[in-house]
Design a protein around this nucleic acid. Sequence first.
DNA 1: CTGTTAGCGCGTTCAG
DNA 2: CTGAACGCGCTAACAG
Lengths: 342, 342
Amino acid sequence: MEQSRRGGQPTLRDVAERAGVSAMTASRVLRDDPQVLPATRERVRAAAAALGYRPNEVARSLRLGRGTGLVGLVVTNLANPFYSRLALGVDSVLVQGGLKTVIGNTGQDPHAERELVADLVARRVDGIIAVPAGADQRHLAAAVAEGVPVVLASRPPEGFAADCVLVDDFGGAHAATARLLDRGHRRIGFLGSPPAVHTGTERLRGYAAALADAGLSADARLIRQGQTEPHEATRAATELLALPEPPTALFCSNNRNTIGAFRAIRAHRARRAAGEAEVALAGFDDFELADALGLPLTLVAYDSDELGRAAGRLLASRLRTGGPPAPPREIVVPTSLVEYGG
Amino acid sequence: MEQSRRGGQPTLRDVAERAGVSAMTASRVLRDDPQVLPATRERVRAAAAALGYRPNEVARSLRLGRGTGLVGLVVTNLANPFYSRLALGVDSVLVQGGLKTVIGNTGQDPHAERELVADLVARRVDGIIAVPAGADQRHLAAAVAEGVPVVLASRPPEGFAADCVLVDDFGGAHAATARLLDRGHRRIGFLGSPPAVHTGTERLRGYAAALADAGLSADARLIRQGQTEPHEATRAATELLALPEPPTALFCSNNRNTIGAFRAIRAHRARRAAGEAEVALAGFDDFELADALGLPLTLVAYDSDELGRAAGRLLASRLRTGGPPAPPREIVVPTSLVEYGG
DNA sequence: CTGTTAGCGCGTTCAG
DNA sequence: CTGAACGCGCTAACAG
């Protein structure tokens, strides 16, 4: 484990010198080119091992023009379990192809997202997997135009061609809302993410469609969109429950809203008149400890790791076959209803 | 937004050609070198904009020898909120220095971790932030020896010099155990991660020390180490509760064990004889919904985002000052006890 | 103010 | 079987 230069890693030439051969021969040995005399090969191998040599991947990718073996992952908030599971799913598939995942956390800021994508492209990532925060996807379209494959997760591409993995947002929301209706609820509130988010609008559509199927129409006063964090959802839910004619059930379009609504309902429980029925709760996204809340809970579940894995597979296959020629693919991950007991 | 070559991004020479200057001049303009005639500058700028040019960061880092602007983050399981928060904290600091985070998820596999670190070094990351899974840290020592700064999070370096950020494991565990003792518990079980993990052993030490302070000695029959996932912890806790002389309280060394133990206690509640007191629960790590479990719960809380941010800051400052010369620093994040009501 | 030369570390091409 | 030359895209150093 000697060092040949101040603090730096050894280079191919260091190995070659030590083995008494040219850099070219060393390169061949290290890439398992058979055209080398066994004796020479051994000398080079020994030298490389002694120096702890590892080829400089930066130089390789520049030379080979093949990209960097890196994939950018663009999400809004890694602390949200939805995104961290997605990240894990993506990474678990990509590592099998020798690819590594670069985190891009945008914190909901569209400008940061634009910069991030541009930077990833400048870094010559082999591809990008993104869950765009807003409706404007031109920065992603630009990446595609420059030859960087993009896979969208949980949102469809708008205005350009790209592979994507979606959740059955409409169907899941419809099923959950229908379940509440089946139980006799007629005034069902809706809590969701900002209207610009695709999943939010699709889930709202599913909710409204289920109401329509039951001969009801969505009541705008019972719909609150725009909550991103649980505490915002708690406030929104509390407001709904304080209405003159409050909803008897709530449907939430994601885990942040469900958790927030749960807290509101629990607080409301204390103030409730005797005999008054508890507000029913349903939501999109399963989450850890959902079974432990002491409240009946209907959740729209799906395999969120699989969402990431599917995105990773789409990108990996796209990289294998090269570029945009093949038509874009869309994968829809199915949902199912889960009931947690009170 | 024209393209000069098939699918590839435009190069500096494409810009130069289009502007009718040499590559060198174009380079100067794009790096805001003042030594350029304003008119020329405008021509180059226009050409770059028209082509959508972005400098190839791979080539730049090779040329400048300054590293890649990437930092490797080595953790065992990104789906664990502890690690995803850490990742977010790290990334939030690093982006401010123009650095990006590369995920390395090892899934507890020491071999995968070795490979991962070697690969990150080969990719010429500027530094590594790691939460090593096992006791063997030679791969990290090797990275340091090759000039790659390493910062450890939540474990101290073993056998080499590196900055690290620790949680007050001993103090937190001691305080939580003392709290249980104050409440009159004398038979307190312990559930923890595998003994090889530093936090696990430190927290066990804190637990044992608190018992000793109360004139008690740790009872090996009440100690279960090795649980990594909640379901394993549930089984271990269930076994403890089924002992002839079961513990009246449990202390868990991390959130996975606390959640697992919670489920065991809840199940046990149903089978409990009337009048028998409920098993008390305390644990290390705060977590979402801890307040909603319907069980009194004492948790050792700390700012887990700050853990990541501190690690990021240590690395960033190390990169600024360059290399290992300065003595290694150790930051300890304090803990506090949080009580959640039943 | 601008262009030429040279080379970061590696691998392809083509001669020895 | 091995080596010398060339270039990936970019920029520091030195011309002009």
